[in-house]
Simulated assay, not measured.
Amino acid sequence: MTADRTTAKMRRVPALLGAVGIVLGAAACSSSGDSGSGSGGGGKLSYDQVRSTAQGVAKSGPCPFGLDLAAALKGAGIDRPVTAGAKDEQPVDTDLGDGVPAQDWPAGASHPAGMPSMPATPPSAWVTCTYTVGSTPVRIDLLAIPQNDIAVNIMLPHIQRFGNVGVDQLTQFANDKPKAGETRLTPGDASVGVARVAAKGKGDLVLTLTQDADAAVEPSLVGEPLRKATEQLAAQLRP
């Protein structure tokens, strides 16, 4: 459940994503659209700050950028015990991506006629904070990209994995992704909270709150309570 394993999957854009891989590739080659301006707790947090902090953060915790899951759950009306870390998982993990050049599509994958190769993936900074809520591992993931309007698309494989989201649902979510300052739930069982965070300067930030996909479900952290907790976390973000 570490960030680097998830990011590796993200970069490869597996063929099983089908049409969603096309959405991801198309987004990765464009920085147009929502520039990241707007309200949100991360208005003073930039891509460079996320990356520099991720380079030196202690993996024993606490979670950086002022993130406090216990306070966020309390603010969302969720009364559950919270401890840092989980079995076989350190409280904080990071992954710094240097970007991936354009490459061939996976064998057998369909793609637009005008896009003969997968577009390059930009550099990234990814921070994961893991907790145990009740008896269930729960994670906060913060992804920062130095280009505008693509962080949600880059995170689609992560969202699919932890949200049990079908390809059609994921494509719909990608086509109507949150604007800066918005927090939404994934389609289906609403088990992933996704907050698009307004960034300082050029770049794009997205924060997700998820449960371990392989653990027993914590019923207090789905649906509207999950959305509120994710919104609380985004409001906590600070340099």
Results as ranks from 00 to 15, higher is better:
T136M: 01
G66D: 09
E89F: 03
T130P: 00
G97A: 12
G114S: 12
A58T: 14
A72R: 08
F65S: 07
G99N: 11
C63Q: 06
D34L: 12
I159A: 02
V100I: 15
G41Q: 00
A125R: 01
T121W: 01
T128I: 00
G163H: 07
G163N: 10
A54C: 02
Y47Q: 07
G33Q: 13
G108M: 03
N153L: 09
G38I: 06
V127N: 00
S46G: 11
G77K: 13
P119S: 14
K59N: 15
G40K: 01
G41E: 06
M118E: 08
N164H: 13
D88L: 11
A125M: 04
S60D: 03
T83N: 07
V165G: 04
C129L: 07
V138N: 00
D168L: 13
S60R: 14
P116W: 12
G77Y: 15
P106T: 03
Q169M: 15
P62S: 04
V82Q: 00
T121V: 12
A113W: 11
G43W: 13
L156P: 01
P116K: 15
L67R: 00
A72P: 06
V127F: 09
A58E: 15
I145S: 05
C129H: 00
L73N: 03
Q55M: 13
D93F: 00
A107C: 08
G38L: 00
S52T: 15
G43D: 10
I150V: 14
D93V: 02
K87Y: 13
F162G: 04
S135V: 12
R51Q: 08
A76K: 06
W105M: 14
K59H: 11
G38W: 05
P112N: 08
D104Y: 02
K59F: 08
G85Q: 02
I159T: 00
P62T: 07
S32P: 01
C63W: 03
L96N: 07
G40E: 05
T128N: 08
Q55K: 14
Q90H: 10
Q103A: 12
A86K: 01
D98V: 11
V92K: 01
D79T: 06
R80V: 06
P112D: 12
A58C: 10
I140T: 09
V50W: 08
P137V: 04
V167H: 11
L170Y: 05
G41T: 02
T121C: 05
T136I: 11
A109Q: 10
D79N: 12
G85H: 06
M155W: 04
R51A: 05
I140L: 05
G33R: 14
D48V: 05
G75Y: 08
T136N: 10
D34K: 08
K59L: 14
P91R: 13
L67G: 04
L69H: 01
S135I: 14
P137R: 13
L142T: 05
